[in-house]
Amino acid sequence: MERNTRDNLINSAFEEIFTNGYQGASLTTILKNAKVHKGSMYHFFANKKELALVSIKEKIYEKFAIRYNTILQLDSNYLEAFVASLKDITQRDFNLGCPIASVIQEMSNLDEDFKALMQQIYQSFRKNIKDILDKAIEKKEMKECDTSKLALYIVSILEGAILSAKASGDVQDYVEVIEMLSTFILSYRL
């Protein structure tokens, strides 16, 4: 029961922050959607900020685990699986954009705790992609290259593609950018 209450708070907080930003997030709405009272929140978290930081961290890492660790569990075809993941438009919200970019843009200049967390998450995001590339090289599926730089390039293009689709309101912008990126990534295959 206690775990469910905490999970409900985490899920509700993440949705509220992803939808309205941290500064626009309503604690009342978070509690209402989690179906808990304020006292229950204070059992788990000192305040809204702590709830926000924990929810952002847990939910984004959960998304990473589903999206990228699944690929690392494969025995082969790492690049193909990664490209398929990039092309899967159901894994992203083009109306709200990328939660990482949204929080970084809103809070990094305003709060050191948010800035530190988002730097950690962003570095983890890049490392997940680097790990996939390294695994492809290790399994002789990909040419040797500087996977740190390539991961940075991929993350930058991916974030830009999500932003383009959000800005234009047209998912096709994302699809077209990812098609070009996919061709580039697959050019590294052996």
Rank of each mutant, 00 (worst) to 15 (best):
K35F: 05
A13F: 13
N33T: 13
L31D: 12
S12K: 08
E16N: 12
T19C: 11
G21D: 13
M41Y: 02
A13S: 15
F44Q: 05
N11L: 15
K32V: 02
F45N: 07
H37K: 11
V36Y: 00
K32C: 00
K48C: 06
L31Y: 07
L31Q: 09
N33F: 03
T28S: 12
S40K: 07
S40D: 10
A34Y: 05
T28Q: 10
G21R: 04
G24D: 10
A34Q: 05
Y42R: 05
S40H: 06
A25Q: 00
A13L: 11
A34F: 04
T19S: 15
K48G: 08
F18R: 13
I30L: 02
H43E: 08
A34T: 07
K48P: 08
F45E: 13
E15W: 07
G24H: 03
A34V: 04
I30S: 09
E16G: 04
L27K: 03
H37S: 10
T29G: 00
S26H: 08
Y22S: 05
E15N: 15
I17G: 06
S12P: 13
S12L: 12
Y22T: 12
V36W: 00
L27G: 07
N33H: 12
K38W: 01
F44P: 09
L31R: 06
E15P: 10
F18C: 05
K48Y: 06
M41S: 01
F44R: 02
Y42K: 02
K48L: 08
A13M: 13
K35M: 07
H43V: 11
Y22Q: 08
A13N: 10
N47K: 00
A46L: 07
K32R: 15
K35G: 06
I30N: 06
V36C: 08
F14D: 14
M41T: 02
L27N: 10
G39L: 03
N20E: 06
Y22H: 09
S12M: 09
S26T: 14
N33A: 04
H37V: 06
N47Y: 04
V36M: 02
Y22R: 01
N33D: 15
F18N: 14
F44G: 04
I30E: 09
S26Y: 11
E16H: 05
F18I: 09
N33W: 00
N20F: 15
L31N: 08
S26R: 09
T28A: 11
N11P: 05
K38P: 00
T28G: 02
F45Q: 04
N47M: 00
Y42F: 14
H43Y: 14
M41P: 01
T29S: 14
F45M: 03
F45I: 09
T19D: 15
